[in-house]
Simulated scan of single mutants.
Amino acid sequence: MRDPREELAERIAGEVALSEDPGATLRKWREEFDVAQTTLADELDVSASVVSDYESGRRENPGIRVVRRVVEGLLAVDERRGGDRVRQHARVLSAGFDQDVVYDLREYAATVPLTRFYRTIDAEEITAGTADTVAGHTVINSVEAIKRLSSEEFYRLYGQSTNRALVFTDVTRGESPLVALRVVTPTPSAVVLHGIEPEGLWEHAPALARADGVSLATTTRPLEELLEALRELP
């Protein structure tokens, strides 16, 4: 497989180049890397106002040289912090997924109590399952996964162990993820539906989860905050 750092750099640069609003795309990636404007400015040896002007569109669209410097700056900051963003990208690539389908796929060094997992992402359990721990998680764009993944690819969402939590984002009521899981065996230990309150849940969802022995929960924590919180797990 190609070097994940190089792959990620090309992906960011390509998105910026093809974007109708390059400044907004640069801002999105800076925020994805959790890098402040002042930190990026220091890395690039420019003033914070220069970074702000590019992101807001006050300066003309950045050329390839500017984009390259920004991308290299973000990756350099990430490396000094331990390389979490590049490793996350590498995990998704190694599992054979695009990162607009799977946001994160990770195995833990030790099992984590399900109560701690839910607490970490501010999730509320709706239905208890048969497992009380998880050994990993996968965060999935539910719409893209259902549109684009085959049943075999869907199974790969489990990574190395089915004792994991599958977190589905872009959920309206939860029908599609739960129905899809019914035709894929075995089942995960937990399913988290992201972006809905418990009262907005599909009425049949708890019964389907109970039938399969799956813990079911919901969370409305913003996606970037959720992904950041999951990095705290071992």
Rank of each mutant, 00 (worst) to 15 (best):
P198I: 08
P234H: 00
A128Y: 04
E144K: 14
Q88I: 05
R58L: 12
G213T: 06
V77T: 02
D212Q: 13
R87Y: 07
Y54T: 08
S49V: 13
Y103V: 06
L74K: 08
P188I: 04
L8K: 06
R119L: 11
P177F: 01
E144G: 06
R85L: 12
H194K: 12
V171H: 06
R81F: 03
V51G: 09
F33Y: 02
G83L: 02
P4G: 04
S189T: 14
L178R: 00
D170G: 10
G129I: 01
H194Y: 04
T115D: 14
D122M: 07
G174T: 06
I64R: 15
D122L: 09
L178G: 04
G174C: 09
T172E: 15
P22Y: 11
G136Q: 10
L223D: 04
T130F: 10
V167R: 00
V167W: 01
A48K: 13
R231I: 05
V192R: 00
L178W: 00
P177C: 00
T130N: 13
L44H: 05
Y108M: 10
D78P: 05
V51A: 06
L166R: 03
A180C: 04
A123N: 08
R116P: 07
D3G: 00
D42T: 11
S189K: 07
L26E: 06
E203N: 11
R156Q: 11
L18N: 12
S161V: 06
V50H: 12
L114D: 07
G63D: 15
Y118D: 13
R87K: 11
L93F: 00
T162E: 14
S142P: 12
A90M: 04
G129E: 00
V51N: 04
S142I: 07
A48L: 02
L230C: 08
A24E: 14
L233H: 08
I126Y: 07
A145H: 09
L216M: 01
L181N: 14
D170I: 03
T127N: 04
G200F: 06
T162W: 13
V179L: 15
V46W: 12
R69K: 13
A90H: 03
A90I: 02
E55T: 03
E197G: 12
A9T: 02
T138P: 06
W202N: 09
E228L: 14
T115G: 10
R164L: 02
E197C: 09
D45Y: 11
V71E: 09
I64G: 07
E72I: 07
D104A: 13
L75I: 06
G83H: 01
Y158V: 02
L40Q: 03
A217Q: 07
G129R: 05
Q88L: 09
T169C: 15
T25Q: 11
F154S: 13
P188H: 01
R210Y: 11
A95M: 10
D100P: 03
E72H: 12
G73C: 03
R68T: 13
